[in-house]
């Protein structure tokens, strides 16, 4: 390390929080909107933008695996490209499973072996990169699980304990992300679920907007479970789900009758998430590690991913990092 670098390091104390950006993205190409996986060029442009605005790393979906193999030569090679753009690495992957009562449903014991096999295979695929978390939605869609009983919660918990043991073998935490439209989303059900899971194998991933939409206070939830929280999606919402918003086929995020656009970037006017309280709680619990920013469907209603992402970073720098960094 040169003298200059040493001097710079002494000016900048070690940060306790680093920021990662979760995969969703759209930009306008000559043939309409495309995501960053469209081509090497669009991926490079995406990574440059994420780096430019001050993110340290990215999260992605594990279903991108085959594109990574096809276009980049696999996760390790893709991660090299990420690093070539000045970002550290891939921090988390989101395992977006296609839940199906016949063969892939956490509350249906007969499907468990299939799910366990899926994770054995998946973890093998990703073993070439160092990940912190594999994030799952721990239940099927709400309408496929209801009525949500303690028994079903317990069966699901038992599954995830076993999955967590598999992922731990690869040094990766299994962590649960509770969408407002999944079977485990209400406060009582979340509490029962965690009472049956083993903290060694199952962590909690706080998505600020999803919990708010489901009428769960994400700050209180975090404070209660801080010891087993392994990450965050910081995003905002302006609406709480009403009536049967959470049980619309095929996908409540898109089909809910009350709300066309659920998600907004941090700092949006009329946002329901109290990010300052959230960051204060993160500080109080001496959390160290990654916070992920997620913008899901940011381009709806005239929105723009690039702009939302820059504004979220503005909010992190000007509001949140003043509380804890």
């Amino acid at each position: 390390m040169t003298a200059d670098q040493l001097a710079q390091r002494s000016e900048t104390p070690e940060r306790r929080i680093k920021w990662s950006y979760m995969d969703h993205w759209r930009s306008n190409g000559p043939a309409g909107p495309v995501d960053q996986w469209h081509s090497h060029r669009t991926m490079s442009s995406f990574l440059k933008q994420i780096k430019a605005v001050g993110f340290d790393a990215i999260d992605t979906f594990d279903f991108r695996l085959w594109q990574m193999y096809g276009d980049y030569g696999g996760p390790a090679k893709y991660q090299e490209m990420v690093q070539d753009h000045g970002l550290e690495r891939i921090v988390n992957i989101f395992h977006a499973a296609d839940y199906d009562l016949r063969n892939y449903a956490p509350h249906v014991p007969e499907t468990h072996e299939n799910i366990l096999e899926d994770f054995r295979v998946t973890m093998g695929h990703w073993s070439s990169v160092e990940l912190d978390n594999i994030i799952v939605m721990p239940a099927t869609l709400y309408y496929d699980m209801e009525p949500v009983t303690e028994d079903k919660l317990k069966i699901s918990a038992e599954l995830w304990n076993k999955v967590g043991e598999i992922t731990a073998g690869y040094g990766v935490k299994l962590t649960c992300h509770h969408e407002f439209f999944c079977g485990i989303q209400s406060e009582p059900d979340i509490e029962v679920f965690y009472s049956y899971t083993d903290p060694r194998y199952v962590s909690l991933f706080i998505d600020t907007a999803q919990h708010c939409i489901a009428s769960v206070d994400p700050v209180a939830l975090y404070r209660r479970h801080a010891h087993r929280v392994s990450g965050f999606h910081f995003k905002d919402t302006r609406n709480v789900a009403a009536g049967d918003d959470h049980r619309h086929r095929p996908d409540s995020e898109i089909m809910a009758p009350t709300t066309g656009k659920w998600f907004y970037e941090m700092g949006t006017p009329h946002g329901l998430v109290d990010f300052e309280a959230m960051m204060t709680a993160v500080r109080d619990n001496d959390y160290r590690g990654w916070i992920s920013v997620e913008h899901d469907k940011a381009n709806k209603d005239g929105g723009d991913y690039a702009e939302s992402t820059a504004i979220a970073r503005w909010y992190a720098v000007n509001v949140l990092e003043k509380i804890y960094r």
Binding site: K48, Q49, A52, G54, H85, A306, E307
Partner: peptide, 21 residues
């Protein structure tokens, strides 16, 4: 897209011209 272009320009300054953000 102005935000996208501003981000790409900032990236160039930081990564190619070694300007600290």
């Amino acid at each position: 897209n102005p935000a996208e272009l501003a981000m790409l320009n900032s990236w160039y300054l930081q990564q190619e011209l070694s300007v600290a953000r």
